[in-house]
Design a protein around this nucleic acid. Structure first.
Lengths: 269, 269
DNA sequence: CACCCGGAGTCTGTATGCAATAGAAGAGGA
DNA sequence: TCCTCTTCTATTGCATACAGACTCCGGGTG
């Protein structure tokens, strides 16, 4: 999670992923995810092992393990003859992933409302919400980064209040898909003033969610969390119409564009 | 899926998993899953590689890949010093997994209702439901096996009608957990007459689900699917009180029993 | 001219050797 | 008797070598 944030900040890195005490496997995993999300390989590209070995500087054994992990995460797909290829995501896939995140977060918030949150958790939620309010009203780029951090902490907090490791694992896997993360589009929102008011709405959702948990209103918590996730869908639609912003989002190249006309790739590697 | 059915029929095997054209990796994976679900290793046991190598007859490389896959599936957990251990499931974990399956299947049926199912799909659903009715009313053991097969086909069918590969993947992962499968307890139902009427109720759910999809009643489809999954929870509670039936279910030994008193394992391998 | 066959190159799957590390056991001292 | 330090062993992580399969290209033949 923290690693994902760091990776998102790097502009084009992936040459070396600050390897110190980490194993070769996780190093390969992080570097590979970075490369994939940076758009280095177009969808459908076969991820041959030997070129990656010399590019990432690790041996085949940890590389293979990293490939398998990324396949489980959904960024790669298994080829029938063996090996892996870069997966392509349709806009429908992303819609469903966002909807699914809403469903799972809705369940998490329903659990939190049914099972009750501690006073400390509620207090921290309120504090985070207030600080997100501040960040939204400041309207400068740095406070958007603050917002991302506060937002992910907020989401982690109600996941904690749900008290369900099983749900936690399921949500982790959905969020690992590109564009399904709660803060996937906040970067874009920092640059697109037309979507600024969406943050105001999102923060209103946050307040409603806190109320619902506090008042043990499970149905309200669930449906509001679903609606909350759907702001990401609105952001997606806005971003999809602003190609120059879209291109800068990690993983943009994995999206199958509706009518790009580029069925035959002109520059095949 | 078919492999899982075959594996479930073997009594204690796992010596060899009918290896013909399959790779060593999937062979190790199937054998290992079989061993784990058979209760060969108590929860917390470290899955050392070398003993498994000589037991499964594969080399360390495919074995390691199989271990990683099972960790992604949730049957194993990563030890901090490296290596894997058998995971233990609390009753709460199983409750949440069942509830989560209900949530995801509810979403699948909502999608099916919103997006519409084809006439062939509805016809096949109706036929499957009718045949499940027959199987339930026959009340012999063989027809319970028929029921399992029809039921899994039924579930696959509405997943197909949902038209969402993302949802499909998420559901596959939840179902891979022991006891979260739609037909996890049907075997037990074949032996416990007290839970026979649950099958009648479940089949009534099936009919309601078909109606809801046909009439595009998305909310009804979703809530009914959730309720449908909760019959598994009732079955779990019945089975948990019949230890001799529980012991025969695959994966039973991975459940942490509430007050078994056996904190210290007497025979620690 | 077209089709088939053969060979070379490349890729993945698998096995095994090596090194580093963590844990346990034993010995020595307080 | 207990604590600590040292040493040894067992286990994992990593690298590399080997084998089988698949593909692609070229040449030969019908």
């Amino acid at each position: 999670m923290a690693a994902h944030d760091e990776a998102a900040k790097l502009p084009n890195g992936a040459e070396e992923v600050s390897a110190e005490g980490t194993s070769q496997t996780v190093r390969a995993q992080l570097s590979l995810r970075e490369l994939l999300l940076s758009g280095e390989f177009p969808p459908g590209t076969r991820m041959s092992e030997l070129p990656l070995v010399e590019r990432l500087g690790v041996s085949r054994t940890p590389l293979r393990l990293a490939l398998a992990t990324l396949e489980h995460e959904g960024l790669l797909e298994n080829l029938e003859g063996g090996g892996y290829a870069v997966r392509e995501f349709t806009e429908d896939d992303i819609h469903d992933a966002i909807e699914l995140r809403g469903v799972l977060e809705g369940t998490a918030l329903r659990f939190a409302a049914e099972r009750g949150a501690t006073g400390e958790q509620l207090a921290e939620m309120r504090e985070l919400s207030a600080r997100m309010d501040e960040a939204v009203h400041k309207k400068d780029v740095d406070s958007f980064w603050d917002y991302v951090e506060l937002n992910s902490r907020f989401h982690a907090l109600f996941l904690e209040a749900a008290q369900s490791p099983v749900l936690e694992r399921a949500l982790e896997r959905i969020v690992s898909l590109p564009f399904a993360s709660p803060s996937a589009f906040v970067l874009a929102q920092a640059e697109l003033p037309e979507s600024w008011e969406i943050l105001v709405i999102a923060n209103d959702h946050h307040k409603g969610l806190i109320e619902a948990i506090e008042g043990r209103e499970a149905a309200r918590a669930e449906s509001l969390a679903r609606e909350h996730a759907r702001v990401a869908r609105r952001n997606l639609e806005i971003v999809m119409e602003n190609r120059e912003v879209l291109e800068r989002l990690p993983g943009a190249s994995l999206i199958k564009l509706p009518s790009s006309g580029g069925e035959e790739r002109p520059d095949g590697e």
